[in-house]
């Protein structure tokens, strides 16, 4: 009984590891493969030749990276500008149709994204937003707003109302209460939502493809172009670059997001 159970557990773990780690290992191999073709199971020649290509000043990887980060930062600013007041209002005020409002932020995710973005692109085209950083930031913002609003709402809801009441009782006007008590206490959740938004923007592909191309090239677009051209080394190296901020921030988020805030997400 016991060996059977152990064996089963090992098998399940192995399958899980294969599906999670398999693609990453493949990616890592491609990143250092200088020659690898069918039917060989492993690369024939290893090396860092393509890394040089990617990071060469004339290559567009560095430029795309800068564009990606710029767009992600602006998206964070735009999202917070909406989600801090919206999250506070949703957490504190008894708004009519509160649940409906929360769901409304989920709408952009609910429809098939290609259909949505084709139409967004059409509208942006008539507004002159196509191919601009602002246009891409706008698309990313709408897409990421659901995380941002839901997480900040949870963060504000987790702040004990008595803490705000105590400040008002001592003479602080509502805005002062917000700046000195509510916001500092909700800050970990707000920062976590900002990180989520940053990562979402960094990884976003579909919207950027329809609204940004060909004038705006982000890392995911670069990766896509490289893959389409059969340039797996460039695509893999770009993907690895994209992995770095994701992993780094995930570790930060894990520290910042406390259980009491997580419990209130979407509530």
């Amino acid at each position: 009984m016991k060996p059977l159970r152990l064996g089963l557990q090992g098998l399940i773990l192995g399958i899980a590891a294969f599906f999670i780690l398999g693609p990453v290992v493949n990616l890592a191999l491609w990143a250092v493969a200088e020659q690898w073709f069918f039917p060989h199971k492993l690369p024939l020649v290893y090396g860092f030749k393509y890394w040089e290509t990617v990071f060469r000043p004339t290559g567009n990887a560095v430029g795309s990276l800068v564009t990606s980060i710029l767009i992600a930062l602006w998206t964070v600013v735009a999202c917070l500008a909406v989600s801090i007041p919206a999250g506070y209002a949703l957490a504190r005020r008894s708004l009519p149709f509160r649940a409906l409002l929360m769901l409304a932020f989920l709408l952009p995710q609910a429809f098939p994204s290609v259909a949505v973005y084709i139409n967004v692109a059409r509208i942006f085209y008539s507004l002159g937003l196509n191919g601009t950083i602002a246009g891409v930031v706008l698309v990313h913002t709408v897409h990421a707003l659901v995380y941002s609003v839901w997480i900040t709402t949870a963060a504000f809801a987790a702040v004990d109302r008595d803490l705000e009441s105590a400040a008002r009782d001592l003479g602080a006007a509502p805005l002062r209460v917000f700046m000195t008590v509510t916001l500092p206490l909700a800050a970990p959740g707000v920062i976590a939502s900002a990180i989520f938004v940053f990562l979402e923007s960094l990884d976003e592909f579909t919207g950027t493809y329809f609204v940004g191309v060909p004038d705006v090239t982000t890392l995911p677009l670069l990766m896509f172009n490289a893959s389409m051209q059969g340039n797996y080394q460039i695509a893999s190296i770009t993907a690895l670059i994209l992995l770095v901020p994701s992993i780094a921030f995930m570790l930060v988020v894990e520290r910042f997001l406390k259980a009491d805030v997580l419990a209130k997400v979407g509530a």
């Binding site: 004990d160 008595d162 803490l163 009441s165 105590a166 400040a167 008002r168 009782d169 001592l170 003479g171 602080a172 006007a173 000195t180 008590v181 500092p184 206490l185």
Partner: peptide
């Protein structure tokens, strides 16, 4: 509440966890 000259001790104390003792007492 902020325009009334009252001072309330809350049942939960409602101390601000992001401040020190001195900052809590000095807030007003």
């Amino acid at each position: 509440p902020e325009k009334r000259d009252t001072g309330m001790v809350f049942q939960s104390y409602a101390l601000w966890p992001h401040m020190t003792v001195a900052q809590n007492i000095g807030y007003g």
